[in-house]
């Protein structure tokens, strides 16, 4: 126990926790996205998929607990690093110019909280307080037909895209995968995964708004 504790106390340990929990969440996000594609197969398919998942009680709750844990440590470590980094910087420069960093990296502390709020909203909307319990397809389509709700999902997913991009790229670095020969692939992979998920997820509310998917 002594060893893990020591590691966790270091900034590097905290980053490792963030990277690992982040990757768990990324895995879930990918699975969640793939499952959601059932939307395009129609009402029956999506509802059947949802019922299928509901039936796997141990897996379902196992996943939920794992995610809760992942979110918990991800957020705790992020908060602890954020406060530490803020203190470390101390005073700010009067003039500041970025040389290497990008928008996604700079806005992690914004996209993170936005995502948290979005996830809470998403859970309330579809899982905890659904309008029509058990009718997933209907909930989704009727929900997205409201432009405000669709808007929330669009904003949330854009934040997700940026957060994922830097998160994936950064997690590989944190976990020690940085080699000049593979670095361009690393970036490409981060772009590809985050873009695929974001564009895919965005397609759901947009398709509904555009009338491609209806009740």
């Amino acid at each position: 126990m002594q060893r893990a504790l020591t590691l966790h106390q270091t900034t590097i340990g905290k980053k490792l926790v963030m990277a690992l929990s982040g990757l768990v969440i990324v895995g879930f996000v990918i699975g969640h996205f793939l499952g959601n594609l059932n939307l395009y197969r129609g009402q029956e398919a999506l509802d059947a998929y949802a019922h299928f998942l509901q039936g796997l009680t141990p897996v379902l709750w196992g996943t939920r607990l794992l995610l809760l844990l992942a979110f918990g440590v991800h957020i705790t470590a992020a908060f602890s690093l954020w406060s530490r980094n803020n203190k470390a910087r101390g005073s700010r420069y009067k003039k500041h110019q970025d040389m290497a960093t990008d928008y996604a990296a700079r806005t992690m502390y914004w996209s993170g909280p936005i995502l948290l709020l979005f996830v809470v909203y998403h859970l309330l909307h579809f899982t905890i307080l659904p309008a029509h319990p058990g009718e997933v397809y209907r909930n989704v389509v009727e929900g997205f037909q409201n432009p405000w709700i669709a808007g929330v999902y669009i904003v949330g997913n854009i934040a997700l895209g940026f957060h994922l991009f830097h998160g994936i790229f950064s997690a590989t670095q944190t976990l020690g995968a940085n080699h000049p020969r593979f670095n361009s692939y690393r970036r490409d992979a981060a772009v590809a995964i985050s873009a695929a998920i974001t564009l895919g997820n965005l397609s759901f509310p947009i398709s509904v708004l555009a009338g491609f998917v209806t009740v």
Partner: peptide
């Protein structure tokens, strides 16, 4: 009291000797 690395890459860009980020990994 130094902060943690969040992989911005600013250090590597500022380094006058071109020391690489890969060493952080």
């Amino acid at each position: 009291g130094f902060g943690g690395c969040t992989n911005h890459g600013e250090c590597e860009a500022a380094c006058p000797k071109g020391v690489s980020l890969r060493w952080i990994a």
